[in-house]
Design a protein around this nucleic acid. Sequence first.
DNA 1: CTGAAAGCGCTTACAG
DNA 2: CTGAAAGCGCTTACAG
Lengths: 336, 336
Amino acid sequence: MPKTIRDVARALNLSITTVSRALDGYDDVAESTRQLVLSKAHEMGYSPNRAARQLRRQTSETIGFILPATVQRIADPFFMEFIAGLGDELAASRYDLLIANATSEEMERELYERWIEGHKVDGFILNLTRLSDWRVQFLSGLGIPFASLERSNDSADSPSVHVDGMQAYADLVNHMREKGFHRFAFIGGHEDLVNHVNRQAWFEQAVCQAGMGLDPAQVVLSDLTFMGGYDSAKNLLSLSQPPDAILCIDDETALGALRAAHEIGLEIGTKIGIAGFGGTLAASHAEPSLTTLDIPIYEIARDLVRLLLARVKKATPGERTINILPNLQVRSSTGG
Amino acid sequence: MPKTIRDVARALNLSITTVSRALDGYDDVAESTRQLVLSKAHEMGYSPNRAARQLRRQTSETIGFILPATVQRIADPFFMEFIAGLGDELAASRYDLLIANATSEEMERELYERWIEGHKVDGFILNLTRLSDWRVQFLSGLGIPFASLERSNDSADSPSVHVDGMQAYADLVNHMREKGFHRFAFIGGHEDLVNHVNRQAWFEQAVCQAGMGLDPAQVVLSDLTFMGGYDSAKNLLSLSQPPDAILCIDDETALGALRAAHEIGLEIGTKIGIAGFGGTLAASHAEPSLTTLDIPIYEIARDLVRLLLARVKKATPGERTINILPNLQVRSSTGG
DNA sequence: CTGAAAGCGCTTACAG
DNA sequence: CTGAAAGCGCTTACAG
C-alpha cells in the first residue's frame, strides 16, 4: 500500500495541512518543521497521489503530443529522439507525457478535443507546424498553452523553438561551390510546412548570394519520403539542363535522391553533389555518406518542454523563442 | 468548464448514483433510464473526470512503457511503429500510454518503482526481453501485470507475444541455398536477449536441416547496430574460410554487413548473400535492397496491449501467448 | 430500480 | 506558524 499524506502527518504528530505545505515549499512553515517533514516523507517513501492532487488542483501535470496525421508514421527518424527529449525534460519536472498518433485528421481533432475536454493535459507540444495551422488556431482560441517547433502565422504569442538555417545554408552552398558544383536544385516538402518555406528561402538566398542563378524549374515539391526524393531527383536529372547539386528538405528525401543519381550512373560527390537536412544516423550510414545540416532534435525537444512548462505554470503569455543553428556535416556526397 | 456527472444528473432529475451506474453499464438500471442518461450525456459532451475516477477506483487506466536503457536510443527503427500500435490499441479502450526512456539501468529501475509506487500505471509493456530479466522478476514479485514481447525464463504466467521464425528461417536458408550460397554465418546480438537466442537457434537448425555444416567461428555476437554489423562482417569476411552467406539478427546489423561487403568489393547477391530481420523501410531502401524476414510491429504492439488489458481488467492470471510468423521478403542482397 | 451518503488523497482558504 | 474543515468529481456499499 502506498503511503498517504496522512501517514506522514501521523508519524510526526502534525496535521496534514502542515505536511502538505512543507512539502510544497510554502514559506509559512517553520524551517525546522519543514526539514522534519521532508526527511520523514523521504524515509517513508511517500509521494503524493497524482489523481488526488490533480482532482484538487484541477490540473493534470501531463503534457500531450499528438503526431500529426499528415506524417508518414513509419518513416520518421526523428521521432524517437524527439520523444526521448520530451520525456526526459518532463520527467525532471515530474510531468507526464501523453502520446497518440493520429491516423486521420478527423481523429487528430478528436484527440485534441478529448484531451482538452477531459482535462487530460495541461498543454501541448506541436511539431510539423504549418503556416496556416488549425491546431494553432484551435488551441489559441481555447487558451490552451502549447509550444511549437517552428511558428505558425496563426500563433499570436506562443513559445516556440525555431531552427535558423540561414548561415548553415550559406556554408553548405559555399562548400559545394568550392567543390565545383554550380547548378543548384532544391527538393522541398509541402508548401505550407514552415520547415519547407524556411529551408527553401535559405537555399535560394544562399544560391543568389553566392552569385549563381536560380532556375524556378529546379525548385520542386516532394513529400519528405525516400520515394518522394527518388522521384523528384529522377525528374530533375532528366531535365535538358539538369542540376549538378541537389539540396533536400530532409535526409530521407536526400537518400532517395542519392539512389536516383546512383541509378542514373552519375558519380556522386564529383559529377553531382547531394545534401540533406537533419543529421540522422541513416545519413552517415549511406553509401556514399550524406552531407547534411545537423540539428539537435533531443535538445530541441527539451527546449520545447522548458518553454511550455514555463507557460503552463506561470500562465504568463510572454512570447519566447529559442533559436537553433544547424551544423554543416560535410561528407562524401558533396565530395567532402 | 467541463461537465460533471452532477450536471447530467440535474438535467435529468436523477441522482448521480443512477447516472454513474447507467454510464458504467450496470444491469440494475432501467433500460429506459439508461437510454435517457446515455443520450443526455452524449448531448452534453460529458465524459467522466479521469482524476476523480482514478482516485476513487484506485486505478490509473494508464499503461506504461519504459524503453530499456540497453537499447541504442537513436537507432531503433521499430520504435515509432511500436508506440503507434500501443497507443492506438490503448486509446480504443480509453487507456492512456505513459512513456519514458531510461538512459541508465539505475534510472530504469527508478522509473518502474516510481510509476508503481505512485499508482501511475496499471501495467507495463516490456520489449527486448532477456532470458534472465530483472524487470520480469521485479514485476512478478510485486504482482504487477505486464505483457512482454518474447518470454523471459523468469515469467511464471505473464502473457506475451512470441515471434516464431523457425519456418521463416528455413525458407530463407533454402532460398539462399538455391541461389548457390553454402557457407552460412550468423551475426547475433547480446547472448541473453531472447530474440538473439531464438534467431540463432532457428538459423542453426535451418542450416543443419538443409544438410550443411556449421562452423562455430561463423556465429558471432554483436550489438544490434549498423557499426556492430559492419565490424562483425569485416571480421567474418577476413577469416581464412569466409562465409558466402551472412544472416543477421536485425536489419540494422545487416545494413552494416552490407556496407562491409561492399567495401571489400564483394559482389552482393552473387558472391555473397546478406539478409536481415525485421522488415524495416531502411532494408527496402538499401542499395542493393536487403532481403529480410518481415514482422508486423504495429500489430504485435496491439496484440501486447490486448493481452495486457485482458489481464489488468479481469485479473485472471491465465497465461496467454500469441504467435507471430515472420514473412520472407526476398530482395537483391540474396540474389532475389 | 433509485437515491443519500461516505470516502478516495489531496490542496487551500480560513481561523487562531 | 499550525490545524480543522471543505471540497475537487467520481464510485459503490447500503438502504429502501
